[in-house]
Nucleic acid binder design. Sequence first.
DNA 1: AGCCACGATGTAATCGATTACATCAACTTT
DNA 2: AAAGTTGATGTAATCGATTACATCGTGGCT
Lengths: 352, 352
Amino acid sequence: MDDFGPKRRLERRSTPHRGVRIQDVARLAEVSTATVSRALATPQRVSPEKRARVLEAIAQTGYTPNLTARSLRSQKTGMVLVVLPDLANTFFSRILRGIEETLFEAGYGMIISDLDGSPEKEAHFTAFTTAGRVDGAILLNGHLFGQSRDGQGRAADIDIPIVALCEAIPNADIPQIEIDNRTAARKMTQYLASRGHREILYVSGPAGNVLEKERYRGYRDGLQRAGLSFDPTWVIPGDYTIESGMRAGHSIVQRANRPSGVFCTSDEMAIGLIRTLLSAGIRVPQDISVAGFDDIEFAAVAEPALTTIRQPRQELGRAAAAALIALLQKQETPRLIRLETELVIRDSVTDR
Amino acid sequence: MDDFGPKRRLERRSTPHRGVRIQDVARLAEVSTATVSRALATPQRVSPEKRARVLEAIAQTGYTPNLTARSLRSQKTGMVLVVLPDLANTFFSRILRGIEETLFEAGYGMIISDLDGSPEKEAHFTAFTTAGRVDGAILLNGHLFGQSRDGQGRAADIDIPIVALCEAIPNADIPQIEIDNRTAARKMTQYLASRGHREILYVSGPAGNVLEKERYRGYRDGLQRAGLSFDPTWVIPGDYTIESGMRAGHSIVQRANRPSGVFCTSDEMAIGLIRTLLSAGIRVPQDISVAGFDDIEFAAVAEPALTTIRQPRQELGRAAAAALIALLQKQETPRLIRLETELVIRDSVTDR
DNA sequence: AGCCACGATGTAATCGATTACATCAACTTT
DNA sequence: AAAGTTGATGTAATCGATTACATCGTGGCT
């Protein structure tokens, strides 16, 4: 292109540089770049005087190592990917905090992907993992990248450590962190029965969801143990959202034979359902008792205050992060971690 | 450390390689690495046949470019840092979703930092930006890295684009995205007055908070326009949390002269406060009317349903992300973007 | 004294892409 | 036909660290 001159080397950028580089520090401290690097990474391997010189130079220049370069060379990013179905859902935010805390303590950062049910996004984040921008991943969405929920389809060839949180992942040999959904749901069903309810309606989670399956089984277990018969017309579909709770509420308002107790498999649904019942003039718990699941912040201040199952959300997050960190450090970690739930009795369930 | 062996050359990794590299693709397609790179980045600059060969080779090998290497070379990370005070707060999660959506559409990823009031963390994330792992940042916490809230202290020498969301940052020449808190608070105060309330109690946000200052001004404005006098004993401190709402509720229950209307500057506080009032046998809204701010999901299903100010949260997130993206692409963007709020009238405020 | 191990340090290879520049062939233009 | 364009492609520099290996000096051991 430049037709005139003989080949001329690209000018050394005249604008000094965007940031301070390890070379600049090395030059100022009159040592090699290797020494600077070691002074930071393995201080005991550098003589005290040089170390001091390096530190001084770093302070003067305000040097910060470029993490991208470090990642490229060391093949470690110090980043963890967290994949979750819905960022805007209250239930997840506290879990996230638990994850964040624990990762931070271990020096890791967190990249969040709100899947939002979009396969397109899913593909995008698969790329992330193969592309070496994260060291590991925590999955809250119940299936692996590139796999459908039933475990079919090619499993993307992910070769980084992964743990599954809350929703177990079928056919995957990775650590699972969860609560015992089945037992928890059974306990709540039995509790409702113990308060004299014999027609216990169940508002489900999304069809096919792993949590839902377990909770449903727990519901059936509970009925059986309480000596109650199961009636499929007492199962209403939901998807854990406030809106689906309201829909379920409407269907209850309109039906002829109303239940005396309702077991919603999320607090959001319980709150939405109660809202609908109250608006229709049905009193809670006097006319119908309603129980929830999760114990989100608003459960305690709802009117009436919600009887529910407490999940240790922050702990779940912490446990998942801890398990992943263990994997990243090539340590052993249990295949299954189950945290305890607690039946929280408040005002939304009363005696029949 | 290993005292035994003679120096031995490091074995060339016998396991082939962790991932497919651009070289592998180039070799298979019988082209240079430059051509592979171009076939992906600027397809029109590569002949159709070679492009086809490259694509074929990529498909066969399952190659994905290593993003870390790309970032290092191109000095772009495709990542944005989002700093927020409290991840577990419902208010932020929907904003986050707006941010995430817009960033995703533009091909950016999101790194989240939950500050949680810890200066230690703040320092950590300052490092992030100087260290070149993100291209830009969205700040929801009301101050710059390394600066105290009043703008004092050394401003960290951040040289990446930054936008401030919700909380304006004093003394910083960066785009702000926010709502008109003052006007919104004035409207609500005037609305309460229009329903006949003359003793309007104000539950504040955290002292010093920028939002709080604006809303407080709006409250004073509203009183004035309604011809009501201001009484400092009608201001109760809060911090936007459910708990602080409950505390405010208790102080109302215990005081001699109760207000007829309460303006809480967050829905969380309103819900906590209502809970306390109801528990004390005070009816809402019959005895005391309560208004909120934000219109979070639970506002509509609370009992009574909350009269509040709707903030377009997802839009706020989208706008902030869009502004940042503009900056990243060296485009112009307004210094101040203000989104409209809306007075949402439900059941928690009634006539005096 | 001679040998060896070890600690401190420097030199240069390396991580895996992007991209500036060189090269060459095929056309245009004058 | 000579000179200049243009487009496709390859070669190698580059991004900024980490780290394998080489080197050198010191002190311990026999």
